[in-house]
Structure formats: structure tokens, C-alpha cells
Design a protein around this nucleic acid. Structure first.
Lengths: 251, 251
DNA sequence: CGACTTTTTGAGTCTAGTCAAAACATGTGG
DNA sequence: CCACATGTTTTGACTAGACTCAAAAAGTCG
């Protein structure tokens, strides 16, 4: 049976994207800022710089001095931690108007993870100092930021729980559902995860190995839960995947 | 060879402890509030209520409506998540002037973990509404809270990394070091972890089982890295434990 | 069409989990 | 103060899920 070719359709990152006008829209749409008056947003906008990065480029490294806060204007960015033994751990995948960078390190002075472009990206950056000034000037923004960080903490704790208590199969199912929720797009009767990501990435997300992920994905495909190929996955049966996460076996 | 009996000396929780005067001291010492003028602190203090809880009592449950923020005035509290399969996951152990409760759920409406008294405790509680008012009234406090939550996020991500990439042995070593850093007290040439915690708890912290933890601890004891007994642990060789975490084997 | 990367498959091994039972602490009441 | 009841820890034997190493198959891109 011939497998479908890659159905991914990634947004083209063109230079226009980071135009002043577009940036205003992005920044004005962020949960952090969207309640502010246009005037304030335009003042804040002036503090941001844009930057294009291409796939696999590192935006910053774990251990670097935490000098900037970033926003994803276009494309996807992954956050990873490196281990002595060599295999990386994938903490999160960001897109849309997600933030990353010095925010997660308040109180610390260095980045605690490495940021890698998963696709060609356009990102906006602001210096930590400028961002802290914004926080001082607009208390509401601090409040929104707090909510965003709290949410990430809760998510991280959920991952801790899963790594502690779930089998690899359950963790993979759960990771797929999480990605689908974030990046999924309807495709026929399935949900395509709009992100080029390899077995390697999925292994790094679930604390496993490429070989094991491959075996589990094959099993899922046999059971009609997913379709997948080189760097893409479509979820065909969300409900049964959810049951699998809860109950721990394919029924 | 006779093992040493429990060397734990826990603070006695007497009713006096939550006296108004003592509460003022606790609240005034919190990173969140300590920069505020005495007057503001006394106003904030009036919004807190104290509560005694005894060992193993639940302070709130995962899924309950998140109505309060808590401070640990005396004693230790653990935060756990329950899993369908029954074994709990221990997310954090709190003491001193740590906060817990509705803080980690900003934006959410329910507690995402269960809080259990690890010892007899005295805790202070404030309603979420009152706390939000404080945040509105004192922007600096919001800022401090943001830093605290960020720190916990970073810690949680470290745990994710360890669960993903470390062996059980490394995770246990790392958990012991973390606890020692937080709750350790010098005892002869070792560091006693001032917390009554069982193999069960250590298993729940490291995503393992009591039996495996027991075996690993026996190995550690043989190698002179720790001494331990029923519900207590003393670390005898911090340095070699640290090397073990990094390199992954007892040298 | 090749060269390269990613994915799959296979065989063997080992870490850590499970189940069961014994040994050991701790606290209680006689 | 000792003996017993209870909960915790240790030990043993067995099993299995997941890792490692190695090589073949399948996509992808110039």
C-alpha cells in the first residue's frame, strides 16, 4: 500500500511578514498586550526588533545570558534541554503568538533551555530591560504574563506526571493529542498536525527513542489510530487515542 | 550492625505558632511582601486565616475549585497528582514560607494537584479574591509572584528532563540532593534531610516503585553515599552523589 | 537518477516493574 | 519493660517493556 506523501503545507515566511504593520498586528493580538490602547501598543512595538531564522537555527543556547524575550511571529520554535548523555529533551513547541526566552527565567540570569527553529521563522525580540520597563509601566501586563507562566507550569507538571506514571505508548498518544490541539488542522476525517517533526522529536518529547517511537507509531497505524510518514502525522481517531491515554491499552 | 534510630527532630507545632504576632512575622518575611511597609503588611495580614492540619490530612484536592492561596507557616506540605493507575506523583515538597494553592492555577479555576500535610502543619490561607486584590493594589507583589512561579516552572522542567533522560538511580540521587538543599541540616559529617519521608514518597518523586527505591538506597548505603532508615535519610557524600547524577554510575 | 536522511525491522539484553514473603521498626497496652 | 499489632522496608525470583546495536527499506532533494 503506497503511503501518502507529505501533506504538510507550511506558511511561507516572506520578508513582508515582519513589516511594521504586520508587527503591530501581532503584538496587538498578544494576550499580554491586547487590552492596551493603540498608542501604548505602538510604543511597545518600537521596542521590538524582528529577526528571521531558518530551520534548525538556534535562537539562543541553554546557559547563555538571558538578554531577550521573544515572540513567534511566524513559524514554529522548539525549546529543548540538553543532557550529558547526548539525547535532548523537548520541552515545548511554540507558534502563533507564543512567547519564549527570558520570561521563563525571571530571577535567573541565564536561559535554562535552548530555542531552535523547527521551521523557517520570523521572531520578534525585545531586550529584558525594555520588557521589565513595560511590566513596570503596565501592571495589567504583569498580571497577564503571570497567567501565561502559571499555565506553562501546570502543563509542565502534567508532563512530569505522565513521564512518571505512563507507558511510552500512553506518553506518545498524549503528546500527539497535545500537538493536535495546538497545531492541528482538519484533513478529511483526520487531524493533520501542522508541524514537520520526526520520530526523533517525538522521542525527545516523550523520553523515549526513535526506534521505540517508530514501533509504537506502526502499531497505532495498524490499529487505524493515526497515519504518518516522514516528518508528519495525521490523527485518525482522536477518541480512541484519548481512551488509550486513560486506560493504557488499545482496546 | 545496628542501624541508627530515627534522628529526625521535627518542630513541634504548638497553637501559639499561629498567633497574630507570629503571623505578622511570617507574612512580613515572605519574598512576596517583605518590601512592603509595615502598615500594608498588617492590612494584608488581616486577610489571612490560620489553620492547623495534622499529618496526612488533605488541605485540598485536585479538581476542587481553587478558592484559596496558602502559605506554610510551620511544617511541611507535599503536592501530589493522582493517576488513574493508582500511584501518585509527588510534584513538590514545601516548607518555610512557601506558597501553594490557587497561585499555580491562574487562569484555571480548579486546583491541578492535591496538597497533603507531610507533618503536622500550621498554614495560612487567603481567598483568591482577596489575593487578587492585593495583586491589583501592589504591582510589586505581582512581580515577585511572577518570579516565584517562573522559578517553579524552571524546576519542573528540570524534573521533566531528568525523568526523560536519567536512570532511576540518577533520579533518586538527584531527588535526595534537591531535598537536602531545601531541608538539609548538618549532622556530624553528613546532611540529614529534615523530613519524614518514606520509600513510597521517594518513589513518587522519581517515577519509580518502593521496591526499586529500596534497592537503590541499599546500594547507596553500601557505597557509603547515604545512611537511611524508616522515613529518614542522611546524605554522607554529597560530592559523589553529584557525580553520580552527572555521570550515571557509581565510580 | 543517485546521495542522503529518516524510518522501519530484527535480535539480543537489561533495567526496572510485579508479586510474594520475610525482616525490621515503632508505638501500644498489658 | 516486654510482647504484640501495625506499618515500613528489605530481599528474592520472575517478567516484561523498552533500550541498544545493526542493517535494510523507504522517502526526499538536488
Amino acid at each position: 500500500m503506497p503511503r501518502p506523501k507529505s501533506p504538510l503545507r507550511l506558511d511561507w515566511v516572506d520578508p513582508e511578514v515582519c513589516s511594521l504593520e504586520y508587527r503591530l498586528k501581532i503584538i496587538g493580538r498578544l494576550p499580554f498586550f491586547k487590552h492596551l490602547p493603540a498608542e501604548a501598543i505602538s510604543k511597545i512595538n518600537a521596542l521590538f526588533h524582528d529577526r528571521d531564522v531558518s530551520t534548525d537555527e538556534r535562537i539562543y543556547f541553554e546557559g547563555d545570558e538571558a538578554g531577550h524575550l521573544y515572540l513567534v511571529a511566524m513559524g514554529k520554535v522548539k525549546l529543548v534541554r540538553n543532557t550529558a548523555s547526548g539525547h535532548d529533551v523537548l520541552l515545548d513547541i511554540l507558534h502563533g503568538e507564543d512567547y519564549f526566552g527570558s520570561l521563563s527565567t525571571f530571577g535567573g540570569r541565564v536561559y535554562t533551555e535552548t530555542a531552535v527553529a523547527q521551521t523557517d521563522c520570523c521572531i520578534l525580540q525585545i531586550s529584558s530591560a525594555d520588557f521589565e520597563n513595560i511590566l513596570s509601566d503596565y501592571p495589567d501586563v504583569t498580571r497577564k504574563v503571570l497567567e501565561a507562566v502559571s499555565k506553562r507550569l501546570t502543563e509542565s507538571q502534567e508532563v512530569v506526571k505522565q513521564l512518571s506514571a505512563y507507558t511510552v505508548e500512553q506518553r506518545i498518544a498524549s503528546a500527539l493529542l497535545r500537538l493536535a490541539g495546538k497545531l492541528g488542522e482538519a484533513r478529511g476525517r483526520g487531524v493533520l498536525i501542522q508541524l514537520p517533526f520526526s520520530r526523533q522529536d517525538l522521542a525527545a518529547m516523550t523520553g523515549s527513542t526513535t526506534e521505540t517511537v517508530s514501533r509504537v507509531m506502526s502499531r497505532f497505524a495498524e490499529d487505524g489510530l493515526v497515519k504518518s510518514g516522514r516528518k508528519w502525522v495525521t490523527i485518525m481517531d482522536t477518541q480512541r487515542l484519548e481512551e488509550l491515554v486513560k486506560k493504557g491499552a488499545v482496546n
